[in-house]
Simulated scan of single mutants.
Amino acid sequence: MLDPEATGLARELHPGTPLALAEGIVPVLVVRSTASGTARALSVLDSWPSHLPRPYLVVVADAVIGAPLPVRYRLRVLAPRTLGVVHVPYLYRLRVTDTPAEALEHRPVAKAAQALRAALGHAD
């Protein structure tokens, strides 16, 4: 959703990958709205290098219902340590499509992607 054309705007870093950013790049940490997802975000931010800019935290809903209490609590704790917390709603199409491009063909996904990019300061 952040890089639908695969231009390199967004890339996945696996655990243990050193964090290094080119000048002007704003980091984005993406987690599921689960207790384990927000616990991992807390762990990553606890070891966030002080020389890097604070990241945005993008929280992707994993269910139609609201986030559980531990998630809501951790997000309140994490918010001041980020540039902002952005919520992505639960989107069924993300679970049943093989590629981001295929998912973006569906209006709710395209609309959520546009809202996400706008929240992160990327104009379409």
Rank of each mutant, 00 (worst) to 15 (best):
H51C: 02
R72F: 00
H51E: 07
S50T: 10
D46Y: 06
P27C: 04
V96W: 06
A67R: 09
Y56D: 11
A79G: 10
L29K: 00
G66W: 07
A79F: 13
A39E: 06
P53G: 02
L83I: 09
P27F: 04
R54N: 07
L52H: 05
L75F: 08
V96C: 12
P27A: 03
V86G: 12
L94D: 11
A79R: 03
A35I: 02
R93S: 14
Y56R: 04
V30H: 03
V59K: 01
T97G: 10
V77D: 15
V85G: 05
P27V: 02
A79M: 10
T97W: 11
A35P: 07
R76P: 04
R81I: 03
L42V: 04
S50V: 09
R76N: 10
V58T: 12
T97L: 13
R93Y: 15
G66K: 09
Y90M: 06
G37A: 08
V60N: 13
L29E: 14
V59Q: 06
D62I: 00
L94F: 01
V71K: 04
T38I: 00
H51P: 08
L75E: 14
G66S: 08
A39Y: 01
S47G: 10
V88M: 14
L91Y: 09
R40N: 12
R74M: 07
L75A: 06
S43T: 13
A79Q: 09
A63K: 13
P55I: 12
S33L: 02
P53C: 02
G84W: 04
A79P: 12
Y73P: 00
L78Y: 07
P55R: 00
V86Y: 14
L42S: 15
S47Y: 05
P49M: 03
T97N: 12
G37E: 09
P27T: 05
A67M: 08
S36F: 01
L78F: 08
Y92F: 13
P89H: 09
A67L: 03
G84E: 14
A67V: 00
L52G: 05
V59H: 10
S47L: 13
D62F: 04
Y73E: 14
S50A: 12
P68D: 05
S50K: 02
A35W: 01
T82F: 15
S47F: 09
A63C: 08
P53A: 01
H87F: 14
P53W: 10
V60W: 11
V64L: 11
G37R: 01
S47N: 11
R54I: 01
G37D: 09
A63Y: 11
V59P: 01
L69R: 13
P49S: 06
W48T: 15
P80Q: 12
H51S: 08
W48D: 03
L57A: 07
R72K: 12
G84M: 09
A63G: 15
P70Q: 01
V71L: 03
H87L: 13
G84D: 14
G37I: 04
L75W: 11
A39H: 07
V77A: 14
P68K: 07
Y92P: 00
Y92S: 11
L45W: 03
P49T: 06
R93A: 15
V59S: 08
V28N: 10
T38R: 03
V30P: 03
A35Y: 04
R40P: 10
L57I: 00
A79I: 07
P89Y: 15
A67F: 04
D62M: 09
L45P: 02
A41I: 01
S36C: 04
R74C: 03
P27M: 02
A67P: 02
V71Y: 00
R93C: 13
V86M: 12
L83A: 15
